[in-house]
Write a protein that binds this DNA or RNA. Structure first.
Lengths: 232, 232
DNA sequence: AGATTATGACTGACTGGTCAGTCACAAACA
DNA sequence: TGTTTGTGACTGACCAGTCAGTCATAATCT
């Protein structure tokens, strides 16, 4: 995987601060006093967090593992003790950060609550668990780079997306059976999530020109969709 | 990157293969018979088309200008006669392919047609002018790479997106005034476009696992949103 | 018209900068 | 002490962008 020369600052200008920064970061990230097991876990986490920062701001290709290492307070070679290669690091980042969310969503899909309450819950869940979180960056990364990592896209589809879709679809079907939403909606759970995705893309590209009230947009959207049942 | 006018290997030793290769490549892309003006235009187009192919399949960073050149039937250096650098090539690609669409959309925003007809028109416009077109790839590129090109995102927002949003918003306001859609919707024209964006992302990442009927999804969505007015 | 000269579009080998991944060695631990 | 964990200089491969040189075509001349 290759690089573009023009878009980064000169190597020389970065080199000066490097050593000092590494020492500071390392001390901050992993206290030398902890046991080996705990220390190892913390290192892994530190590397993943650093990787997310770097991948997010420069993109997967342009991100330098040396910068990831520095940010994690670790030497470059150390990354290779925890991850097979750059791609595997990316994979583990996605897996680690998104898999836990699935259970939460599936749980939410079980309960049959009144639609207005459901709308609020969906909005809250998205905003508090994704949008205001580093998960937003992970999702953005998946959107941006996923196409070039078919295996990763497959993993994500199988382990995350298909399960979320199934949960939402089941929920919508039950609501449709009660006549609260039209039948057609259950066929496209993607519609429910669409504004969330728009918000993530928007925040990365256009927020600075025109801020977007995510919460309000999602609420407006869901209220509109869910209002169908009220006037049969 | 600068060059010192140092020693290069003798020109004569290079000249041997040149002529044949040049003729073959050029013949494929641009007939040598055309006038200089026409020829130049075709070359530009050929390079842009090739760039779209390469950027789409490998991403901006990983795309090699040498591959773009080969695909366009042109030498690498020729690209630099038409575009300042790789980034400018990307910029021109976006500008060239998306700007013309704006007028069409603004025109559509003028007419006040019945909502069900409007829904069909929006779906048709999106599917026939974007989704089933190379513009889909351009939009995908914008989504994927736009964050790392703030100037490009700004251009795109100013010249394309803000105008589309304004047109759709005006349309929605007029519909709201007639009571055909709720007031709230006009605040978020993004909601109208959201499933289109989802479709583009989906097609790149998950189509092979679960195909998506874009037309039907968009229609379902718009019919739901626009159904509000029918039952006051 | 045909011959001659001028132009600039086009070529592609080359350079300098870049970085993922390796490995010989060092430090920390138990 | 031996084992595990960590280090960072190094290497091999990579590619954007350059520019001296070429040659098809246009312009000018006869």
């Amino acid at each position: 995987m290759r690089r573009v020369a023009g878009f980064r600052q000169s190597a020389a200008s970065r080199a000066g601060r490097r050593k000092r920064a590494a020492e500071v970061a390392r001390a901050a990230a992993v206290p030398a006093s902890a046991g080996r097991k705990a220390r190892s876990g913390k290192r892994r986490e530190a590397i993943l967090a650093a990787a997310l920062d770097e991948f997010s701001s420069r993109g997967f290709e342009a991100a330098r593992l040396e910068d990831v290492a520095r940010r994690a307070g670790v030497a470059k070679g150390t990354i290779y003790l925890y991850f097979r290669d750059k791609e595997n690091l990316f994979q583990e980042l996605i897996r680690t950060m998104l898999t836990p969310l699935v259970g939460t969503i599936e749980a939410m899909g079980q309960a049959d609550v009144p639609l207005p309450v459901l709308a609020d819950r969906i909005v809250d869940l998205f905003v508090s668990q994704v949008y205001e979180t580093r998960r937003k960056d992970v999702v953005r990364l998946m959107i941006s780079e996923g196409r070039r990592f078919p295996k990763l896209a497959e993993f994500y589809y199988r382990e995350v997306l298909s399960r979320i879709i199934a949960a939402v679809r089941a929920l919508l079907r039950r609501a449709a059976a009660r006549g609260e939403v039209p039948e057609g909606l259950a066929e496209f759970p993607q519609i429910i999530a669409a504004p969330g995705l728009v918000a993530i893309v928007w925040s990365g590209l256009f927020e600075r020109f025109e801020p977007l009230d995510v919460r309000k947009m999602m609420k407006t959207h869901l209220d509109l969709l869910f209002a169908q049942g009220r006037v049969p």
